[in-house]
Design a protein around this nucleic acid. Structure first.
Lengths: 383, 383
DNA sequence: CTGAAAGCGCTTACAG
DNA sequence: CTGAAAGCGCTTACAG
C-alpha cells in the first residue's frame, strides 16, 4: 500500500503516468472521465505521492523551518503554537530547530544545515550576525523574523522600546522616582535584542521624567522566575531600595514578587511591580503588565511565510508591528499610598537584612506552613 | 553554491561520482589520498548532499515526526524540549505535528500524512484507536509513545495510577477523610488516559483507606489554571466541603489555590492541596506535588527512537518506566492542625457562599489592591 | 487532450 | 580500490 507508485495508478486507470501526474495536480484540461477514473484508481490503491521524488523533481520541499533559542519558555511555546497552526493550514510541514547557544548557531548557519531542506525559514528573537544573514540569503528562500528585523526579510515584532517606556511611564505617573529594572543579562553571548530594547525604554521613561538612571537600580538574570527572583535579591541587597520594579518579562516579575514577599515587603504598598507579556498566570498574581498576543504573532508571521513560499514570485518583505497594551491590575500603586514611608524622607523605612535573603531554591525554614490566609485582603486582590 | 552537485565535486577531485558518494559516506576502503582530495573539493565547492535525492535513492528521510495534542502546555513544551535535543543529537530532523481535536486526528492517521515522510514517529499522550494503530503500523517505521503504551511500540510513561494513589495516600496519612479530586474531563472527545488513570489512583487510595468515593467530591476541567480554578469553585459550591484536594496536575492545583484564597479558605489549615508534575512554579506556591522529570522522558524516548531508526534491523520495542516522587512542601497538613474545626463534627465550619464566587477571569472588585502582605507568616512559606 | 522521454541528484549492486 | 549504469518516483517541456 505504501509502495504504490504513480505507474500502478496509471496502469489501473489505463493512462500514462504523465497524465496521472497532471490529473493529480489539477493541471491542464483533462477529460472529466479520465480524471475521475484516475482519482478512483488512486483511491483504490491508496496512492500518495512520494515526497522525496516530488522534491527531487520540483525542488520544492513543502517544509519550513522554525529556529528558536528556547522551546519551553512561555513566549516561545506560545509562538510555536501559533506558527504551527498557520503553517499546517497552509499545507506545509514544520521542522523545529533549537539553537540554544552560539556553538549551535555556528552549525545551523555556517554549515548550511537548512540548505535544500526547506522552502522557508522563520527565526525567532535571534539577533543575526552579518555572516548569518549572508548564509540565510544564500538559502534563497523566504525568511521571516520574529522579534527582530533584517533588511530584506519579513518580520513581526512589538515595539519593545516604546512598550517598555510606556510600562515604566505608568510607574512614573504613580509618582515613583526610585524605579528599578530587572532585565536580561545585557552581556549574554546570544546578544538578544529584546532585553536591550526594553532596557532602553526604561531609560527613556526615566530621562523624560527627569530622573537619573542609577546603576544600583539595575539587576539582571535570565528571563525566568528564578532569574527574576535572584535579580530582585540583588536589588534588595543594595543601599538604595526602589519603590517600584519594572520586570522585563512576567516570569521575572513572578520571581520578583516571590523575593519581595520573602523579605516582607508588600506589593504594592511598599514596592510596585510591573511586568511584560501578560503570561496566563499573571492575572493570578494580579500583576500589572504590558500585554502582547504572542500566539497571534506566530499565526501572522506563519501566514506570511506560507504566502511567500507559495507565491510564484517572492513578494516584497513586510515589517509587521504587533500591538501591546498596559493591563493595570494590583501590583502597582501610587507612592502616596504607602503611609508608613511618610515618617521621614530617608529614615522611615527599614531595609531588610540582605543576609536573611534565602537562595531561590526549594529549601525553606520549617515553621508553620501557610500559603494563603489574609482572607479579607487577598480575596479582593486575586481573581 | 547551493547548486553544487556531486558531479562537480567528482570532476574537481578527478574521480567518479560513485567514488565521491562512497567517500562522503565513509564506505569502503578508499585510498587516503583520494579521500582527502574529495573532502577538499567538497569543502571548496561548499557541497552538501541533496536531501531529496538521498531520500529518493535510499528511502530514508532522516526525519522523525512528533505528534502531540498540545504545544503550549507545560508538559508538552517540556517534553518537546527533551525530544528535540535527543533527536537532533541523533542527527535527525524533527517534524512537529499538532493534533488538537478528533478531526485533526482523522487527517493525520487515516489519510496517511506521515507516509514516506518520516523514519519514525513519537506520539504523545494520545490514546490510539484500533484503526489509528493499524495506520501507524502500516507506516512500517519505529513508533514510540509517551504516556501511553501499545503492543509493538516502544513507550515511556510514569505509573499514573500508582503515583496518584501515592499522592492521595499522603493525604490519607495526614488524617484526611474528605478528599476531593479535580480531574480532567473523563468524557472529553480525545479520550486521554492520564486523567482516567490518575482518577483511578485516587479511588484506589480511598478504597484502601476504607473511604467511600463520593461524587460530590469530584469535579473536573481542563488541565489548566483556569480548569483547576473552576473545578474548585464547583467543589466549593456543594454541600460537603473537602478538607483536602488532589489536583491531577499542578496547573490545576494553582487554580485551586486561587479559588480557595478567594473564598478565604486557608491552605493548608483549612484545606490541603496536592498537585502532580512539579511544575517550575510549584516551588513558588510551596505546592506539595508528585514530581516527574518530563524533559528527561522526552530525552529518553527520543534516544530510543533515534536508536530504532538508525538500527539496521528494528530492535524489539521496550516499555520504559519513568519514576515519580512526592515532594512535600507546604500545602498539605494533618487534619488535626486545623484547630478551628475541632469545635464540632459538622457544624463548626462555615461554608462560603457559592454566590460570592467570582468567575475565573480577570475582573475583580476594586478595593485596596494588596498582593503580598502577611509578612511574618508568608515569609516562611514561600521560597 | 495525452504519451514518451529526459532529468532532478543521489546510492548501490555489478563489473572490472 | 574505482567506474559505468540502473534505479529511486516524480514532473515537465516536448511532440503529437
Amino acid at each position: 500500500m505504501a509502495k504504490t507508485t504513480i505507474r500502478d495508478v496509471a496502469r489501473l486507470a489505463g493512462v500514462s503516468p504523465s497524465t496521472v501526474s497532471r490529473s493529480l495536480r489539477g493541471i491542464g484540461g483533462l477529460s472529466a472521465g479520465t480524471v475521475s477514473r484516475i482519482k478512483e484508481a488512486a483511491e483504490h490503491l491508496g496512492y500518495s505521492v512520494s515526497p522525496a521524488a516530488y522534491r527531487l523533481a520540483t525542488g520544492r520541499t513543502g517544509t519550513v523551518a522554525v529556529v528558536m533559542p528556547y522551546i519551553t519558555r512561555w513566549f516561545f511555546a506560545e509562538l510555536l503554537g501559533g506558527l504551527e497552526k498557520a503553517v499546517r493550514e497552509g499545507g506545509l510541514d514544520l521542522l523545529l530547530y533549537h539553537v540554544g547557544d552560539t556553538a549551535m548557531r555556528q552549525q545551523y548557519f555556517s554549515s548550511g544545515l537548512l540548505r535544500k531542506r526547506v522552502d522557508g525559514v522563520v527565526l525567532v528573537t535571534l539577533a543575526l550576525t552579518e555572516p548569518e544573514v549572508a548564509a540565510l540569503r544564500a538559502l534563497d528562500v523566504p525568511v521571516c523574523m520574529v522579534g527582530a528585523a533584517v533588511e530584506g526579510f519579513s518580520s513581526i515584532r512589538i515595539d519593545d522600546v516604546e512598550s517598555a517606556r510606556s510600562a515604566v511611564q505608568h510607574l512614573v505617573n504613580l509618582g515613583h522616582t526610585d524605579i528599578a529594572i530587572i532585565s536580561g543579562d545585557p552581556h549574554e553571548p546570544m546578544h538578544f535584542t529584546v532585553p536591550l530594547h526594553r532596557r532602553a525604554g526604561y531609560h527613556e521613561a526615566l530621562a523624560s521624567a527627569g530622573l537619573m538612571a542609577r546603576p544600583e537600580l539595575e539587576a539582571h538574570g535570565p528571563f525566568t522566575v528564578e532569574g527574576g527572583y535572584s535579580a530582585t535579591v540583588k536589588l534588595l541587597g543594595r543601599r538604595k531600595l526602589p519603590t517600584a520594579i519594572f520586570a522585563e518579562c512576567d516570569e521575572m516579575a513572578f520571581g520578583a514578587l516571590r523575593a519581595l514577599e520573602r523579605v516582607g515587603l508588600r506589593v504594592p504598598e511598599d514596592v510596585s511591580v510591573v511586568g511584560f507579556d501578560d503570561h496566563p498566570m499573571s492575572s493570578y498574581f494580579g500583576l500589572t503588565t504590558m500585554a502582547q498576543d504572542v500566539a497571534d504573532q506566530g499565526r501572522l508571521i506563519g501566514e506570511r511565510l506560507v504566502e511567500a513560499v507559495m507565491a510564484p514570485a517572492e513578494p516584497r518583505p513586510v515589517q509587521l508591528n504587533a500591538p501591546t497594551h498596559l493591563v493595570v491590575r494590583h501590583t502597582t500603586a501610587a507612592v502616596g499610598r504607602r503611609p508608613e514611608r511618610r515618617s521621614g524622607p530617608a529614615g522611615g523605612r527599614t531595609r531588610p537584612s540582605p543576609s536573611k535573603l534565602p537562595p531561590g531554591g526549594d529549601e525553606q525554614p520549617a515553621g508553620p506552613p501557610e500559603l494563603t490566609g489574609a482572607r479579607q485582603r487577598r480575596k479582593e486582590t486575586i481573581p
